[in-house]
């Protein structure tokens, strides 16, 4: 079981959280302007990176805030967590998010 360092509450057990999966690029502003291929690429495309990956997590049984977590998928290490909108901490070896 992981310990997730909630940026608002501090480190808490994983059971308090729900994982929203890999953080992708923002939802297109005008989905109607995209063709089927571009739309489904945004909808379903995931990188599933082996290594540091940015994920969205929700502190469901805590402050109720969604935030971002960098987790290394190779060894499950949680590298950092930060609020949405804030810049990712430097030096985590993160690639650009999403396809």
């Amino acid at each position: 079981m992981l310990v997730i360092p909630c940026p608002f509450c501090g480190p808490r057990e994983e059971v308090e959280f729900a994982c929203g999966g890999e953080a992708g690029p923002p939802r297109p502003a005008d989905p109607g302007a995209l063709d089927d291929a571009a739309w489904t690429a945004w909808l379903w495309g995931r990188v599933n990176r082996k290594g540091p990956q940015v994920e969205t997590w929700w502190h469901q049984a805590g402050c109720g805030r969604w935030f971002l977590v960098a987790r290394d998928t190779r060894d499950d290490r949680v590298l950092a967590a930060w609020p949405i909108g804030a810049p990712a901490p430097a030096g985590l070896g993160l690639a650009e998010p999403g396809p």
């Binding site: 729900a18 929203g20 923002p26 939802r27 969205t56 109720g64 805030r65 969604w66 949405i84 909108g85």
Partner: peptide, 13 residues
């Protein structure tokens, strides 16, 4: 509730 909070916080903060 999770769905509403998710969109409000992550996509349209």
């Amino acid at each position: 509730y999770a769905w509403l909070e998710r969109w409000a916080q992550t996509e349209w903060p």
